[in-house]
Amino acid sequence: MEKTRGQLEAQISDAVIRFEKEYMGRGPLETKTYILDDLVVVRLKGVLTRAECQLAESTDAYNGRDLIKRMRHALLEKGRPMLDAIIHDILGTRVKSLHTDLSTITGERIIIFSLESRPEALPE
């Protein structure tokens, strides 16, 4: 049975939550995924730990917010093969590139996967 767009998006959200919990050590409070043609946009809310929130409030941006962003970006890049595999397994197409940013003010992270092609599993 073919899955709906909503089911595929929910499956990606669940998989990214598992990745965040298992690989990053803490899952987001809320996750929503959007599949748009050959892009997958994942929005994660509440990703910062208490310690990171304290660090984000530091007046020294380099040793506070920038440090959090650099560390989180490096961790995500190291775990990228796992994320690429998650997307490939669910949608049946390979990831071309991954883009991400994190707001240390709101604790929200956006991950954008650019795909090699529109997913075959995606209903019209």
Rank of each mutant, 00 (worst) to 15 (best):
N63E: 08
G27Y: 02
K69P: 01
L39I: 00
S117W: 02
L91Q: 06
R72K: 00
K32R: 12
H88N: 04
T33S: 14
R26V: 01
K45H: 10
E77V: 13
K32M: 03
E20K: 03
M82I: 14
T49K: 11
I87L: 04
L91N: 08
I110R: 14
M24C: 08
L55T: 13
R94I: 10
D60K: 12
E30G: 04
Q54D: 14
S13C: 07
L122V: 00
H99C: 08
L91F: 11
T106E: 00
R50N: 10
I86Y: 14
K45E: 09
V47F: 15
A121T: 15
Q54F: 07
T31A: 15
K21L: 08
K96L: 07
D66Q: 08
I110G: 06
F113M: 01
I105T: 12
R80N: 02
G46I: 05
D101H: 15
D37W: 10
I68N: 06
D38M: 06
L91S: 04
G92Q: 01
E77G: 09
T31F: 13
I35Q: 06
Q54M: 10
E77Y: 04
D89W: 11
H73P: 07
P28N: 00
A85D: 08
S97G: 13
T59M: 08
P119V: 03
I90N: 09
R80Y: 15
M1D: 05
L36F: 12
N63C: 04
S13W: 12
R70W: 05
L67T: 14
R70M: 02
K78P: 13
G27H: 02
Q7T: 00
G79M: 10
R80K: 00
D84M: 00
C53L: 00
A61Y: 08
Y62V: 05
A51H: 14
T31E: 13
K78N: 07
L83K: 03
E22V: 11
G107L: 09
D84R: 07
E30R: 14
L36S: 12
L98P: 11
P123V: 05
H73S: 15
I68D: 02
E9H: 13
S97Q: 04
T106I: 06
Y34M: 05
